[in-house]
Amino acid sequence: MTLLQVSGLDVHYGDFQALYSMDLTVAEGETLAVIGANGAGKSTLLKAIAGLVAPSAGEISFDGTSVTTLAAHKRVPLGIALTPEGRRIFKSLTVEENLLVGAHAKRKGPWNLARVYEAFPLVADRKDRVGTNLSGGEQQAAAIGRALMSNPRLLLLDEVSLGLAPVVIEQIYAALPAITSQGTTVLVVEQDVNQSMKVADRVQCMLEGRTVLEGAPADLTRDQIASAYFGI
């Protein structure tokens, strides 16, 4: 069953067009990775799905209903959660308070404080610290936990691994099976191709606001990906 369908999506920032008639489909329970170089439009795509930027054309439908013009805060109760690029942890709130703010929509589901702490020991150890005093990895784990607290059906992860040490990236991705095993659909965006190939059922590669390649990781060759990624 299709959970998310994006069709013909255009997004402009003023005169600059960031997405050109983007199409994307995610089936319920699937993990899709969107890869692409810096500036390809990946974050813009996720923001449009979450409702932070308004598309100038096209449709976004979630679980069969159009959410194209729905305000961002009204998409969370439907089950769309975004962990934004840069983590955006609330700096003056403690980790636990960040998680509680994430639960604001009070959606029912498997995730609560205890479950998040279990999935991310990194977060549990730091629960009383304020956002300012966290390392990048701790912030990232807390940001994912915060998104999970809304018990999303669709979790959007933007650049999880950006700026983190490999061992920390490993730790954070280790929690992904615990998330997907709950039936949560995941859309990851990464510049790090290898990382996303490991976790994704399907990969879609973007270049300058368009999809240039898509398929299952096993069906794509390194050369195909490299040329799609760099546009050569």
């Binding site: 932070l52 955006r88 609330f90 700096k91 003056s92 509680l100 703010v101 604001h104 956002g131 915060r146």
Partner: peptide
């Protein structure tokens, strides 16, 4: 209070607050 928490969050980073399902 939960509302107080939301007020602090909005003070920190209003752009991220809607992602919590909260209307600034």
């Amino acid at each position: 209070a939960p509302l107080g928490r939301a007020m602090r969050a909005a003070s920190d980073d209003p752009e991220t607050v809607p992602l919590m399902g909260i209307d600034n």
